[in-house]
């Protein structure tokens, strides 16, 4: 039973669209509507977000969310997008599950955990090459070339 096989095909598609739209809406809410969540009741998380905003990191992540969300919705470079999304989600999950006491943040943390966890599993086969015990150096472009040579053409 493969992740892209007929039984899982539409479930993976649903999760990809769900997570992609979630990122897209979150980023567009900030970039277009200018919505910034009220972190004043979020305790230590509020201080952390304020510090991120001060150095421009919060804004940068919001614009990155638009790009990553669009990549997932349009099914372009999904494994690459998931790596960046996992980094963003790890921070969100840590803050929302362990630091922020608010129930809404608890929901957000669990939602992120389930979606990124499932998608990383579903697309995890693309990262199998990362798990070699011993690896020789390989330039990125050389890896791309060997990928192209090994790709199955229909």
């Amino acid at each position: 039973m493969t992740a892209g096989g007929s039984r899982w095909h539409y479930i993976v598609l649903f999760a990809r669209l769900y997570y992609g739209i979630h990122f897209l809406v979150s980023g567009l809410n900030y970039a277009v509507m200018g919505v910034v969540p009220d972190f004043s009741k979020a305790g230590a998380v509020g201080d952390y977000m304020a510090a991120l905003s001060e150095v421009g990191m919060y804004q940068g992540v919001k614009y990155l969310e638009i790009v990553l969300g669009a990549m997932l919705v349009l099914n372009r470079f999904v494994p690459l997008a998931l790596i960046f999304m996992a980094a963003i989600s790890a921070v969100i999950i840590y803050l929302n599950l362990l630091i922020s006491p608010h129930p809404r943040q608890l929901f957000t943390g669990i939602q992120e955990l389930i979606l990124i966890g499932f998608l990383l599993l579903a697309y995890g086969g693309h990262y199998a090459g990362f798990c070699k015990r011993r690896s020789a150096p390989l330039w990125f472009w050389d890896g791309l070339r060997s990928n192209d040579a090994g790709a199955h053409r229909p």
Partner: peptide
């Protein structure tokens, strides 16, 4: 999503929460 985001209807239901899985 509806149950968790409202903490079993203790808080208001928001389109921001249920709209994403619905659209997907």
């Amino acid at each position: 999503v509806v149950l968790a985001s409202t903490t079993f209807f203790e808080r208001p239901l928001r389109l921001y929460d249920y709209g994403t899985p619905l659209l997907a």
